[in-house]
Write a protein that binds this DNA or RNA. Structure first.
Lengths: 218, 218
DNA sequence: AACAATTTTTAGCTTTGTCTAAAATTTATT
DNA sequence: AATAAATTTTAGACAAAGCTAAAAATTGTT
């Protein structure tokens, strides 16, 4: 399994939630920042290797073997991100690129020991669940902040956009995982929200609210 | 700088102590487990990129830029080996292959933080010196055990052969870095030695004694 | 000095993963 | 249903890094 093959599997895995009937070539190409023709080539190779199902013009669907591989890579990515933040003083907006490299290191023992060393964390620094050794991945029920209604309350459990820009915006406004958020107002005009967090009220754009995951209080 | 280029630089660096007048193509090919023709190709590319001096049939010589790159890779390799042993319960014979992968991860901050996290170790688990951030590498004055004479004493400071087989042999005989070793006898016939270590005497073959570095007491 | 042996280089081919441009297929629109 | 638009695939090229086989240069031996 080459580095590039692993990255494609991961891309297909992530896109499957948006395209459950088959992930389009163009979507894969965009995710991988390559051209559709390149994506086609790679998808064919992965189908050849029996990691996914592919019918021309019908998109790609991981089979259990391929999904397993993808999940293993994701497990490694999220464990390394946790390591960087917990042990090496990285902030949550600095870890993605490095974890993209580290996730391809091959050693079962390494990742098992790393998991133990970190105390078997359940989620990574962005709130995403870390699959266990057998590939089981906990589905955290979450919704985007913008879905909530006036008066609703919840806690911040993750982000959809892991870009430095967004994460630093959150840092600046003291919004982090575990924080309690209450909807004070919904502005019809631009779908922005007024929320209460840290006892203070602030305004948050629809774009930002679309990228913040909340677990609503029951 | 590709992974392969980094590995070649490292190979040339290691071979320069044996071939100070220029590292022969064949030696590089052997070290890299490729064919001489492949080595020639790569050496030319590295010369093209101004990392080493190359004249056909004259071997390769790193220039300061190339040497710097090589040392950085070696620094990363040895820090990762230390991490694996100190933090993740690896033994010294298990770390080499994984460090070969980890040494290519690109992030200055990562390696700086890792160094601090480990408490800025001076040597790796095999006794090899870890270069500092500026590429300064301490030359530990050492000699192979087989050079010592009857009655000499010293402490074990490193190994020349990092193979699992050799390291496990040392483990089995409770020889590790820092151990005091005294030469009780030299056997003329096969150049084996009788040594005292851990208060017990044992016999050690010439081959083994050639791969164990000792710092002789002044 | 001449020939043999060794070392090194060159030339040409392969695979991986990318690209562009053109062809084919599917979807949308009138 | 026919045509336009969008998507996807095919065909052919390219760079990296390796290979084999053959040529060239160097070194060693008589």
């Amino acid at each position: 399994m080459t580095l590039s093959e692993e990255n494609y599997l991961k891309a297909v895995y992530h896109l499957e939630s948006t395209f459950p009937e088959g992930v389009p070539t163009n979507a894969i190409a965009e995710e991988m920042k390559t051209k559709p023709s390149s994506a086609t080539d790679m998808i064919k190779r992965l189908a050849e290797k029996d990691l996914l199902a592919y019918k021309p013009y019908q998109g790609a669907k991981l089979n259990p073997t391929g999904r397993n591989h993808a999940i293993k890579v994701i497990r490694k990515h999220r464990l390394w991100e946790s390591f960087l933040v917990e042990k090496l003083n990285f902030s949550w907006d600095e870890v993605h690129e490095i974890a993209e490299q580290l996730e391809h290191i091959k050693s079962d023992k390494l990742i098992r020991e790393l998991d133990n060393f970190l105390g078997n964390p359940k989620t990574d620094p962005h709130g995403d669940p870390i699959p266990d050794e057998d590939g089981n991945i906990e589905i955290i029920q979450k919704r985007v902040l913008s879905e909530l209604e006036k008066g609703d309350e919840g806690i911040c459990v993750g982000v959809n956009d892991s870009s430095s820009a967004f994460l630093q915006y959150l840092d600046k406004n003291e919004i982090s995982l575990g924080k309690k958020i209450e909807i004070l107002e919904k502005e019809e005009f631009d779908n922005s929200l007024v929320i209460k967090v840290n006892g203070k009220s602030m305004s948050i754009s629809n774009l930002a609210a679309n990228n913040l995951y909340i677990k609503k209080y029951a």
